[in-house]
Nucleic acid binder design. Structure first.
Lengths: 348, 348
DNA sequence: CTGAAAGCGCTTACAG
DNA sequence: CTGAAAGCGCTTACAG
């Protein structure tokens, strides 16, 4: 009887939690049997099963994860690794969306999520041993810029991982889940053409990120399909920040005074672009139609509300988690591309 | 020799990590000695110390946390528990700021942060056993609305925790860290008076949150100190969302057509309020001065940029972490109030 | 200052 | 289907 009862105040006093041993004693079986029902009840008689479950409920038993980890050699947790400059990523509403849906997806599997940031080289050095030591069973990796050394590190350490978005650069077989950026861009630009727009400019994302690259490609493809010649002055490259969207739009307005539509590679940049357009005394969508990308919370906060391409964040997260879990079980890598969806609002 | 060398491709093949045993053998000492240097090197000769450290480096040894946890009865990790309706909290930029600075503060102590959301009753039920089972050593609790059952739960389970902001409702001694909401509000309203404003309205936060309550109180106090009678029609209550700020402002504009300033209890609501003001054809700050609260990223994205009260997020996070760590070491509870700062920009 | 040994709470072949 | 037993990798009194 190692348990200490709560004292009169009702406050538990260093009451140490029941172990598998207590449960076994209570149920009148061996610890091995208790462990078996904990694992799902294979090879356990219904009677024993029942007795053990009753004891578990009675004692409020919950397994000690450290002890389990020690023998199974599994951490039982998964890391959400954010390998971006912190400022950029934390201000990006997409990050929040992703974090939320990954948390939910992991909670469904009863797996704790360990949040790790690794924006700087120093941080990466610090977390490397943690990751290599298998303190987590796998990692959900968020890192959009080309050539993140973390990828190679994880590969060497044989830590299962899944990237969000295609990792740029030369790597072996790497699992990733991404939205269909190019097709999303094509859809938006096609829609702008079909709405009667003729001179469609674009604000692209950084060209060392898959979204920056692919969405620009989609834009060019759709121009070609409509027999429109691609012109450099119709393109400005931002960094996904609101401020860069505003600056890019000013630049485009100067270079192409008569443009009548702009496809912006992120909602946040579209927000900035809209400010620039309004400040130039032009109306949206009467003078210029604006199409975004993401369908982030800002899209509906804008005035007029933003027509955009919805990224399937929930599906992306769920799929990443599923893929990672499969990989932990020994399955090979895979890449999954998920479709996007055009959401028409008032800005076009 | 249980280690399997990397194969020719350089890819580690199920190489199992070195243990304390390997280190001991390598250094020619006992496992106990290795453990002692791991704990800081008390009672270890310099020579042994040296040999062990060399072996650790040589073998790339990193401690197995599960094994350590099992014997120390410490999880070695801390939970960041978000007990708000998810939508509200994830869209709140303050949350992101807090999460970032807590991650950084914990990283400084080399403690992994486990992210847990508990917005719904069902979620709370699910995480309770996890928390009570001491799968984390303590929790940083984010929950602003009155009467969160999680607080009592943590108290009963004797899990150390520190709240962000004063928890409303009857509780025993609870540790929390908060900004000085009332003083911040007083500072803003005083500043508005001193800028020559006469009819100052306010958009307050939810009245079952400390920020909602205290900032309104500060407003009232400062009115009284300036001999201005408090009038109900000068107050609107929002829910911290952008949309509510806009609605509240419309309401105030109707109720008090001649107001010349408004103190808004959050930057996000101030964003909405500014939209409403502009839509009413009024100018900021010429016709109406707008003061916010938080100094969140939106403050500088607005046009004009927002005058606001800066919350000391970094200090709040650091202090919460320090307090929690102290509590885990057995120290008693404490409450810490941190000063805010007026940041004057273009909206006043 | 150091080593031998017990023990943390589980899981998992291995017999039966 | 079940129990006895070994063992996961550490820490920590306890002797010396």
């Amino acid at each position: 009887m190692t348990n200490i009862a709560p004292d009169k105040s009702g406050r538990a006093r260093s009451k140490r939690p029941p172990t598998i041993h207590d449960v076994a004693a209570h149920a009148g079986v061996s610890r091995g049997t208790v462990s078996r029902v904990l694992q799902g009840g294979r090879n356990v008689s219904p009677a024993a099963q029942e007795a053990v479950n009753a004891a578990i409920r009675k004692l409020d038993y919950v397994v000690n994860r450290a002890a389990r980890s020690l023998v199974t050699q599994r951490a039982g947790s998964i890391a959400f690794v954010l390998s971006e400059t912190q400022d950029v990523f934390f201000e990006d509403p997409n990050f929040t969306t992703l974090l939320r849906s990954c948390t939910a997806a992991l909670a469904d599997h009863d797996i704790p999520l360990v949040l790790i940031t690794a924006g700087t080289e120093a941080e990466r050095r610090r977390i490397s041993p943690y990751l290599s030591a298998h303190h987590v069973d796998g990692v959900l990796l968020f890192s959009s810029h080309r050539g993140n050394p973390l990828i190679e590190h994880l590969q060497r350490a044989a830590v299962p991982f899944v990237c969000c978005g295609k990792p740029l650069g030369r790597h072996g077989a790497v699992s990733y889940v991404a939205a269909d950026d190019r097709e999303g861009a094509r859809t938006m630009v096609r829609y702008l053409f079909e709405s009667g727009r003729k001179r469609i400019a674009t604000i692209a994302g950084p060209q060392d990120t898959p979204g920056g690259l692919e969405r620009l490609l989609g834009y060019r493809e759709m121009l070609a399909e409509h027999g429109v010649r691609f012109a450099k002055r119709m393109v400005a490259i931002g960094d996904y920040s609101r401020a860069s969207g505003e600056a890019c739009m000013r630049q485009l307005l100067t270079q192409v005074p008569d443009l009548d539509a702009v496809f912006v590679a992120s909602d946040l940049m579209a927000d900035g672009a809209m400010s620039a357009i309004e400040r130039a005394g032009l109306r949206i969508p009467a003078d210029i139609a604006v199409g975004g990308f993401d369908d982030s919370p800002v899209a509906t906060a804008l005035d007029p509300q933003l027509t955009t391409i919805r990224q399937p964040w929930d599906r992306i997260s769920e799929t990443m988690v599923r893929q990672l879990l499969a990989q932990i079980e020994g399955e090979g890598s895979a890449t999954v591309i998920l479709p996007t969806e055009l959401v028409v609002r008032a800005s076009t």
